[in-house]
Nucleic acid binder design. Sequence first.
DNA 1: AGTCATCTTTGACATAGCGCAAACATCGGC
DNA 2: GCCGATGTTTGCGCTATGTCAAAGATGACT
Lengths: 231, 231
Amino acid sequence: MKIDKSLVRSIPLFDRMSDADLDKFLGHAVSRRVPAGEAVFEQGAAATHFFLLLHGRLKVTQVTEDGQQIIVRVVHPGDLFGFAKALQRSDYPGTALAVSESIALRWPTELWPQFVDRNPRLAVTAMQTIGQRLEEAHTRIREMSTQEVERRVAHAVLRLANQAGRKEGSGVRIDFPISRQDIAEMTGTTLHTVSRILSAWEGKGLVEGGRQKLIVLDINGLAALADHVKE
Amino acid sequence: MKIDKSLVRSIPLFDRMSDADLDKFLGHAVSRRVPAGEAVFEQGAAATHFFLLLHGRLKVTQVTEDGQQIIVRVVHPGDLFGFAKALQRSDYPGTALAVSESIALRWPTELWPQFVDRNPRLAVTAMQTIGQRLEEAHTRIREMSTQEVERRVAHAVLRLANQAGRKEGSGVRIDFPISRQDIAEMTGTTLHTVSRILSAWEGKGLVEGGRQKLIVLDINGLAALADHVKE
DNA sequence: AGTCATCTTTGACATAGCGCAAACATCGGC
DNA sequence: GCCGATGTTTGCGCTATGTCAAAGATGACT
């Protein structure tokens, strides 16, 4: 599939790469269209490629031995993902599932070292990316350790609105299909509890819900809920 | 303070470095003795150095806005720590506190790039280290999302026994002073609950407790508790 | 337009584990 | 050898949240 170069250029990681380098980089890439509901790679599979999301939205999930699922993170356009090999893993630690129709570029993991070599900025970006993820993970741990469910959900929704929000009417809509179950798996609770919480918020005019839909009407109100130490 | 070179050699990261390179590396290092209870660096402080723990034990903690503390991880001898700058942060995200008398080497963060340059293995090790930490963080998130407190504590204790266990009599002793409060902060619960759980375990002969002391008597029994899906 | 699968809401109920409080144990210092 | 500081144990009540159950909504497909 032909690669939309201007799309790639719009990604910070590549905006200042020389045209020659970019061509070399993209020369090895394979573009793939992933329909909603399909996996880019599966947990436990051999890490043969690393990826860059150009368009769409993925969720990375892990399943525990006893069958419970959690959402590790959401992949947004411009994000590198699946570079387990760079971290010295031989298999993917999670499953990457398209939640809406997506387009991803793919490179064989063997190329990673030479890309990094040729383009130091990539190494820095990768380090940075992982650093951020580590920080996010710690934030999540901190929240799960110290906050009640409602605040955690508030934080999660705010984060989503930030990363995947699109203005719609008087509010900000989460720009991909997301279920209560998904939110539950991101915050470590059950869909029932999430449903109750969202219903309550809807009653207070903070959000507007719907099937696989979520619109934040009052960002500040939500932020207050998320930050406010209850008294 | 003079650096014990054989101690450094015993760390996997350095065991195969050439003598010349090692000398160059250590030439820039400053060794510091940290008494128990003292901090190597504090959360929020400018990240001026990165470190290597030679001896002792540290806990890295974070404090939330509302004053609650969590233990992010325990640093063992041979671990690199505090390389926030490599991850493009300007300050330390947590506080590193010695829980027993420790010795740490210290380098200015500016040297990081050139060390990595001269010694590619360091870069790989660092990447690997961060990858592991990320994985650990996800494991913890998974546990906190899906398991009850008792299983989480069991996992935490097993991990400690693995990383810091020393045979003692018929059991394995956690080889540094650790309180119920600490365990609580590692597992996202309260010291009360931890105390109850440990008391129960002691009743079953799984562990032996004490002031800032913990000895695992029955690793398998504990592992069963940690893994066994309750029915 | 009807059917089915999926997602959401809501209720009733059970309980794990937290908060509070007080007694108790252990250790290091004087 | 006593004292104060620090850590641990235990009881009790409460409530946030999970579990179980069932009834709506919503949208996709035929």
